[in-house]
Design a protein around this nucleic acid. Sequence first.
DNA 1: GGGCCGAAGAAAACCGGTTTCCTCCCGTCA
DNA 2: TGACGGGAGGAAACCGGTTTTCTTCGGCCC
Lengths: 357, 357
Amino acid sequence: MGGRPDAPGARGDRVRLIDVARRCGVTKSVVSRVLNDDPTLNVRPETRRRIRAVALELGYRAHAGARALAGAKARALALLIPDVGNPVYSRIIRGAYRRARQHGYVVLLAEDPADDEADESFADLVEAGRVDGLLIASAHPAHPLLSSPRLARIPHVFVNREVPGSGRNIGMDLPAASAAAVRHLHGLGHRRIGLVSGPGELQPAAARERGFVAEMVDLGLGTDRIVRGAFSEEGGAAAAAQLLRADPPPTAVYCSTLGQAVGALHAIRAGGLRIPEDVSVVSYDDLPLADYLEPPLTTVAMPLLELGAAAVDAVLAQLAGAPPADVAIPVPPAIVERGSTRVLGGLPTTKARPRRP
Amino acid sequence: MGGRPDAPGARGDRVRLIDVARRCGVTKSVVSRVLNDDPTLNVRPETRRRIRAVALELGYRAHAGARALAGAKARALALLIPDVGNPVYSRIIRGAYRRARQHGYVVLLAEDPADDEADESFADLVEAGRVDGLLIASAHPAHPLLSSPRLARIPHVFVNREVPGSGRNIGMDLPAASAAAVRHLHGLGHRRIGLVSGPGELQPAAARERGFVAEMVDLGLGTDRIVRGAFSEEGGAAAAAQLLRADPPPTAVYCSTLGQAVGALHAIRAGGLRIPEDVSVVSYDDLPLADYLEPPLTTVAMPLLELGAAAVDAVLAQLAGAPPADVAIPVPPAIVERGSTRVLGGLPTTKARPRRP
DNA sequence: GGGCCGAAGAAAACCGGTTTCCTCCCGTCA
DNA sequence: TGACGGGAGGAAACCGGTTTTCTTCGGCCC
């Protein structure tokens, strides 16, 4: 062997495929195929072992750009969320991260501008070849991306807010969530149950509303106490205030988001009523914050980690060649009981018969 | 011109540099240099114009991987945040996004595991060549990355939580924030002011505490009402409860995070006291949620958008060859007055003094 | 009219992988 | 003994940019 002009850190001290190859006395093609588990490759187990060991020892990591360039996958997915300030997404994000990592993928989080900037953002990620697939959280129907033909060229799914007819929806059982809330309140003796719903054009708002209506009807209750408001504290406050103006007012309110519930608590109290003595409140979305509201809020917990994971699975399936398909998360919603609900007219301590007032 | 075997979408219908070049009748080197504003290039203005027009028309976008591979920059920065569920980061994120975009960069958000997985996460982003620089939000002193020699090889800054001595801190005027809160309370007549502080080893907690102490001393007030708790609702609740056990208890409390404030409101009420009649509460961090707490929370608003933008500027400066340097955001904190503070003994309705049960 | 110069662009090497197609060698079988 | 076959790995093209070096051409000067 004549000298060794190939110091490990020849350039920029990045460990390259060829560094591993040289150190093993093989060519880079073999190393590449071993590390990628190419089934068509024939090597001695000993060589395979050695390559793996050296790669590990040197801390080799493929250059994502080079890999993407060579026609292989970038091994990255983008998760587009509309508002990074909304903690609802944090659990979805975590679920997605973990599952992606298990598959050797990275999830890049991006805040989705959802306006005319959206195109730019999309181009930066997809058309620049940074990612292989897209998880789109909470796309509203007017989202510019949805009407762009460019979207069709990359595998993608919709999470947390369905796009009807897309055949790419990863959804939870939203109607079941509403039904659970209604049943819970009904079990506590409530009959006049109001709904703080979301904007009519948003699919998940509509789904929760449908579930609410269906369960109310099933229980033989009236469905006229429904007010729609924005998915925000303000929206919840306004909607709740309007519900309370009904005569007779509801004895219980179900809110479509935790943000709305925060606003509703505020409005109810502003109206001179107590929670839960005068009005019980249940909210969709279980978040840590619920524990620290006044009073702590009873919620419907959704399988968000599973949702994120399932979305990753679905995109990876598309990448593997499968046609897109809707996915329903089988985990059912669960009521998390806290202090904002109470047996109708019941004392804090008594056993109160919930069934027939 | 013999036929045209170069259909626009020769492969995978991606518009390549060479597609633009052919259509302009020049070579790709010229196109590349025009689009990157290479000052050493000599072309006719007409050619330059034509190239730009064609690139735009075709919607050309450079492949990030190819670009990174060719030794140029990937034009992406990673923003590592410890908890995507924490809305504090959302404004920093937005500030960073916007500034980065202005410079033609993309910000990739990643949740920083801050444990043994951190290495993997780092490797996935940095060593895979996906990003050119790192914005590290809220690194705590024991963060595995800080002790890794690999960090030194990539431009990076610390945001929102300083790493003493790193010379890479992008910081706000934390002591000024505390001072503003204290002055505000002092102006309302409060003298016994408590502090719900954060974990002692966290730099920002310490900074806020220092500012608090300094201002209290300046005003000739006692600084013995300081309790440290975790940066969480639980931590705030526990710390506030302990403050209230003092004799005499504080008439006002300043909390180091909004999460702690939520817990503190809870604990204060659980102790049978009213806000703001019995205890005034101010919190660091102004977030939309503050408006909807019971009562709406008076806060100290920090220049978070500016912080994110400044962090991007700093990393880009490092990329351009400048040595790393600490940066102080010049924008001062501002008090946002809401319902949780009141003149000491002031009486909207009554004078009530539940001081001694 | 030849030489020189600068403007305008062409050519080619290279980045670090992936992948397809070869080659070489050895054992086996006819 | 020679052809064959498969195991083990080598060689090279290619991905889409960037960057350095080279060429060509026209005009100007002497």
